[in-house]
Design a binder for these strands. Structure first.
Lengths: 333, 333
DNA sequence: CCTGGTTTGTACAACGTTGTAAGCAACGAT
DNA sequence: ATCGTTGCTTACAACGTTGTACAAACCAGG
């Protein structure tokens, strides 16, 4: 049985508003009145009806996090950090799984918002800046590289620099035939484009010629795609002595394919990834990777959103860069 | 700028309720009126205020899924399936991360519910049946083995049978010193207890004596715990020739520890897990495991909840068993 | 005992929506 | 002409909460 303010008020012998004042910590309530009300609340196990409160206040206390897929470890780890950071602001996080398709993402960006959430942290794959205009001013923070100079706040990692660093590390190991796995031609592939740019820049830095045959596309960035791309590279005429995979799940798939081909990592082929997911610390061999500061990304995103919600909604969009570092492990020591 | 029914009504030259009727698909609205209203809705980009609708209707269209940790792959994969199944019923899923502590779980089970959600699918670690009484009749479906005969609906896997089967498989490989990793003494360890029971039953079936030294506890079920437990077993006097890990992440950690110890899998030690997470299909070696039908679990849970929401809330709690199978791969072929 | 200010409590309206009841046409059947 | 009937639309109240405005009680100082 659910109780309302009115029930508590009757039991405590005060008005509805006085109970509301107690619940909301209003100061000018006599100590004994407050005690009576609190006792009644406890006895009835009263809990406020958030729908009603939200209707009245115009805010819901819920923010949404929209990610392409939850069972991609990177997004799961990110989600955990976002939930933690949001909890510190007293927000509940509604996690929405878009699947990465343009239509679903559009729906996530506009549909979910039907007054149910105060703001949105959005990690888009397919959406362009154009899709984001006209979203009724729903406060929104974007994660990742897509929608480069859209109308919303933005938290990014310097993909080009990070990719350049990890590729340079492979060069530093003495490798010269360095492959890349994960390129994409679709408009969704903004991260792919930037990481590819970092890769080619590092090769240029080292005076190594760019060989298109060493760049393997991957339709999605799952383990199976990484394995398939690696197998393809191994059957080609250009035998790579290192691979930079554009994310860790691709790299884990590549490790698997190399193992099946009887090649040793890192002796025959060095492997590097991007994301620093938990798996990479226990894989065989452990995975060298770019480690973006996921906790920082989550915290910055939540704080940007908090700024929009409590402050100026019309301020020009800001872009914050989260730090990254290289986590060097066995696959490319 | 957000618009209300009233704005649409004024623009279309009808009453507020008529607009509401159009929005809700009420039949008896003249075609031209409907068209005028729909045009006005489109022009103003009107979206209903869900808080108000919920307040009025008493339902929110949101269900919650509470899991201990999102970045445990099993829960992430489960979450994906629950989101998919719930979408077919028109529900949005609010994913809540409890952390597995008793206090947080109690809060998830009661606190979140403040009229914000219609029902809860809950995968508890620490909560007992006693904690669940007096939850104001929030419709709830429990996943997993804890709270064995509590007051709520329940979807389970036959942990004892599954553990027995996979252990029997290890026996069938000719192994005799079969270790177990993941036992727990805490009240949280209901799954651990059941899987341990299946393990001992299989040993008894095969006439193999139970050796306490072969059973390694694990405080949590992460990769690091599995690695630590495996290392501990390897330094003990009883050299195991097989290990049954109570979940896949433990098994992946064990694989890692075996690799570091220079042991071959499965030649020296066979390894089996439980959950069939994506990682296990690409690990080196690939992982033999118990594969619970996660999609089925999610679907059954959502359907049980749907039954509670639309039907009899006082019906006796039901327990449904989701099927499982063995996925035999390289680590214990 | 009054004055003026502060503290404590109350009544009422409003948030945006939908259910209920009822009004008003237009229609065919009496 | 009158009577339902049916189709379409409207006014009003209600969901549970909180902000506003105000009343009552209290206090200190004269």
């Amino acid at each position: 049985m659910r109780h309302r303010l009115k029930d508590v008020a009757e039991r405590a012998g005060v008005s509805v508003k006085t109970v509301s004042n107690v619940v909301n910590g209003y100061l000018h309530v006599r100590a004994d009145t407050r005690a009576r009300v609190e006792a009644a609340i406890a006895e009835l196990n009263y809990r406020p009806n958030l729908s009603a409160r939200n209707l009245r206040k115009g805010r819901t206390g819920v923010i949404a996090l929209a990610v392409p897929e939850l069972d991609i470890p990177y997004f799961a780890e990110l989600a955990r950090h976002v939930v933690t950071a949001a909890a510190e602001h007293g927000w509940t996080v509604l996690i929405d799984q878009t699947g990465g398709g343009p239509e679903q993402e559009r729906k996530a960006a506009s549909g979910i918002g039907d007054h149910m959430i105060d703001g949105l942290i959005f990690s888009p794959l397919a959406l362009t800046a154009d899709d984001l205009v006209g979203l009724d001013g729903m406060p929104m923070v974007l994660l990742g590289e897509r929608v480069d100079h859209g109308p919303a706040d933005h938290v990014v990692v310097d993909n080009v620099a990070a990719a350049r660093e990890i590729t340079a590390h492979l060069v530093g190991l003495g490798r010269r035939r360095i492959a890349a796995i994960g390129s994409q031609r679709t408009p969704e592939g903004a991260s792919a484009r930037l990481r590819l740019a970092g890769y080619t820049a590092a090769l240029a830095d080292a005076g190594i010629g760019y060989d298109e045959r060493l760049v393997a596309p991957a339709p999605a960035w799952h383990r199976a795609d990484g394995a398939a791309a690696m197998r393809h590279l191994l059957t080609s005429e250009v035998r790579p002595d290192a691979v930079f995979c554009f994310n860790d799940t691709l790299a884990l798939g590549a490790l698997r394919a190399l193992h099946e081909a009887g090649l040793r990592v890192p002796d025959d082929v060095a492997v590097a990834g991007f994301d620093d997911i938990e798996d990479g610390r226990f894989s065989i061999p452990t995975l060298s990777t770019v480690a973006p500061d996921k906790e920082r990304i989550a915290r910055l995103a939540v704080e940007l959103l908090a700024g929009r919600l409590t402050g100026d909604r019309e301020a020009p969009p800001r872009e914050l860069v989260a730090p990254h570092r290289l986590a060097l492990r066995e696959s490319a020591p």
